[in-house]
Design a protein around this nucleic acid. Structure first.
Length: 634
RNA sequence: CAGGGUGUAGCUCAGCUUGGUAGAGCACCUGCUUUGGGAGCAGGAUGUCGCAGGUUCGAAUCCUGUCACCCUGACCA
């Protein structure tokens, strides 16, 4: 077993990382010629085929040796950047008593997404999906003075969420590896404040994903159920990504679909106005001439597409009106109902409604809405005139008065054509047009999801473009949501008790690995960036039985390891074709082939995975230098 | 949770309509040959046909139930 000698490391107080040498015959890399039928996304298929992961249950996977090496490298990069940003690593338990989630109300928010069980004593316990409560519980006992702040703590750990539908392998699992960091401050602004750490984390995240060799975009995001005031998502760019992101090519503004603002759009309820068309409106299906309001029988057609076809118009020529209610606990004053009117081809954005009217809304309960007088499925903006305590919010693209619209008739199974804002709702709208502000019960505001080609909110004349991405990182400004709920207060310099201000920062570690495969592969297999590849170099030994060849392979591996590179030595007694196919599949950045051909030519064959062709012969003495130089290239 | 699909050898799948006691390719084991892009020949091993009930002389096949997994949606890091 002397060949193991290359794996021994001489300990030194000064660490110059020595690479590792692993022989294929002594580990397990179970490659598959064909992808198992259950895998449909590229990263899932390749991770399975290349012997990185195996499924244990839906959304639950073994990380095999190759995957684990890559994951550890990603983790190490994260550690270095978190530490550099002032974070301290710790480890919290995966098991969390339900009492902690009850304190913040997240037991209900998470609901069935929380894995729960009861221990033998009947204590309700959850597997942690994230650890705000646990860390807040720890710190409310350990930190009592503002002098101990600011503080940033993080951990890298398996998280558990009982996803309604796990899918795409590691991209959406029920158990996954995540780095979660939490920061604590006395204030939002100023030295030691949340903003300072948030900005530092933002930079650290850019460093992490940059060092991992990923092509990514940072987008503004809604903070979601976790709560808080500001948020950015880090998205790995790839065409198969499940998230849609919008970007303004002029200003660099980028946001996800929930958050993306839309630039100024002209609107007017005036029937005689000219040029009211905004640049976003193709004008298809609209009729400038005034037509009479006509009721049309449209039985069993609550859907926009069906009705539009039946009425002989397009969705662009229709008004879609949805009925919302103030969310439970929302401070809505007198308002009981919120009507949102958008163009038929647009989607209402609840977050934007909230921002426009000042309180959160949820889609109305159908039974309640019907008993209040709404003909659900056939509602028009005019319902705001008849139902009391009803607020009407209109998207600018729908607030066009120089044309007629098809819309609901406010009675079941009927729509109307020829609806015109000014003629048919003049009274309600008269004041609204003055300034667009909250006059009486009508308001015009951006309340829809952005679309390709919408005006940019940050650069006049520019339009938004669409990209696909995979979310691998997310940072939030939490504020005092958790500290207030859990009584984490600290004495400030004025001897007043202040709830602590928090931020939280997550990276999906296992998802980052999958996203990398998703982003970087070809028809033959994976193509790893050097920084997170399981090994830097794979040595393909063509004739493992030839003592001279084998000795050269060992010598090269040793040299490369000394230079700090990790080496996988394919010493299997397999045919060349099998080894080459496998090498392409598992995707190490560099491949060295030791065979008679190249030896006769005075060297070994060198090939970068990302290059086409069969590679070049490099003299043995120059190999290490050549590898290091190639890996150093961006 | 709604809709759809699939469970047969390690993997990909055929067989099911029309019931008669299980197959192919690849992988695996042995031997020989071969050795630069998933080899050839010869031989060999491999299954509670997801599970449970029912119908039948007889069930992979028909019926009922159930479980698992995948896809689309809702939801979501």
């Amino acid at each position: 077993m002397n060949e193991h000698a290359t794996a021994t490391v001489s300990w030194s107080p000064v660490t110059t990382r020595r690479g590792e040498v692993v022989r294929w015959s002594q580990t397990i890399i179970p490659t598959l010629r064909e992808a198992p039928a259950e895998a449909t996304t590229p990263s899932h298929q390749l991770l399975l085929r290349a012997g990185y992961i195996r499924q244990v249950a839906s959304g639950v996977y073994d990380y095999l040796p190759l995957a684990w090496r890559s994951l550890r490298k990603i983790e190490q990069i994260i550690r270095e950047e978190m530490n550099a940003a002032g974070g301290s690593e710790m480890l919290m338990p995966a098991m969390v008593p339900m009492e902690l989630f009850a304190e913040t109300g997240r037991a209900d928010d998470y609901g069935n997404d929380l894995f729960q069980f009861t221990d033998r004593h009947g204590r309700a316990t959850a597997l942690g999906p994230t650890h705000e409560e646990v860390i807040t519980d720890f710190l409310r006992h350990a930190v009592t003075s503002y002098r101990q702040l600011p503080l940033t703590l993080y951990q890298i750990q398996s998280k558990f969420r009982d996803e309604p539908r796990p899918r795409a392998g590691l991209l959406r699992g029920r158990e996954f590896i995540m780095k979660d960091a939490y920061s604590f401050h006395l204030a939002v602004e100023g030295a030691g404040g949340l903003d300072e750490t948030y900005d530092r984390m933002y930079q650290a995240y850019c460093n992490v994903f940059g060092r991992c060799g990923l092509d990514f975009t940072v987008v503004e995001a809604e903070s979601g159920p976790i709560g808080g005031s500001a948020s950015h998502e880090f998205m790995v760019n790839c065409p198969t990504g499940e998230d849609t992101i919008f970007r303004c090519p002029e200003s660099g503004y980028a946001a996800n679909i929930e958050k993306c603002e839309i630039g100024e759009r002209e609107w007017s309820f005036d029937a005689t106005a000219t040029g009211a068309d905004s640049g976003t409106d193709s004008g298809a299906g609209v009729t400038p001439a005034m037509l009479p309001l006509t009721k049309v029988h449209t039985p069993n057609m609550p859907g926009i597409e069906g009705v539009a076809e039946y009425l002989g118009v397009t969705a662009v020529g229709m008004l879609k009106t949805l009925v919302f209610q103030p969310a439970p606990g929302a401070d809505s004053g007198e308002t009981e109902w919120v009507l949102a009117a958008v163009r038929g081809d647009h989607d209402v954005n609840e977050g934007k409604i909230r921002d426009a009217i000042g309180f959160k809304v949820v889609l109305a309960d159908e039974k309640l809405a019907k008993s209040a007088g709404f003909a659900i499925g056939y509602v028009s903006p005019r319902a705001a005139d008849t139902v009391p305590n009803c607020l009407l919010v209109i998207d600018p693209d729908a607030a066009q008065g120089d044309r007629v619209w098809a819309t609901g008739s406010d009675e079941p199974d009927h729509h109307v054509t020829g609806f015109n804002w000014q003629r048919d709702m003049a009274q309600s709208l008269s004041e609204c047009e003055q300034n667009g502000a909250f006059v009486s019960y009508v308001k015009v505001a951006d309340i829809r999801n952005a679309q390709f080609g919408d005006p940019s909110p940050r650069a006049a004349g520019a339009t938004l473009v669409i990209q696909r991405g995979l979310e691998t990182g997310h940072i939030f400004k939490l504020g005092s949501k958790y500290s207030e709920a859990m009584g984490f207060v600290v004495m400030d310099a004025d001897q007043k008790r202040q709830p602590v201000i928090m931020g939280c920062y997550g990276i999906g570690v296992s998802r980052t690995m999958a996203a990398c495969v998703e982003m970087s592969h070809d028809e033959s297999g994976m193509i790893w960036p050097a920084a997170i590849a399981p090994f830097h170099v794979e040595i393909v030994l063509m004739k493992p039985n030839d003592a001279e060849h084998a000795a050269l392979a060992e010598q090269l591996a040793e040299e490369l390891a000394k230079a700090g590179l990790d080496v996988l030595l394919d010493d299997r007694k397999e045919r060349p074709g099998v080894k080459f196919k496998d090498a392409d599949l598992i995707g190490m950045p560099l491949r060295l082939t030791i065979g008679q051909k190249a030896l006769d030519a005075g060297g070994v064959e060198f090939k970068a995975r990302s290059d086409e062709g069969k590679g070049e012969v490099v003299p043995v003495a120059a190999i290490t230098e050549h590898c290091l130089a190639t890996l150093a290239q961006p």
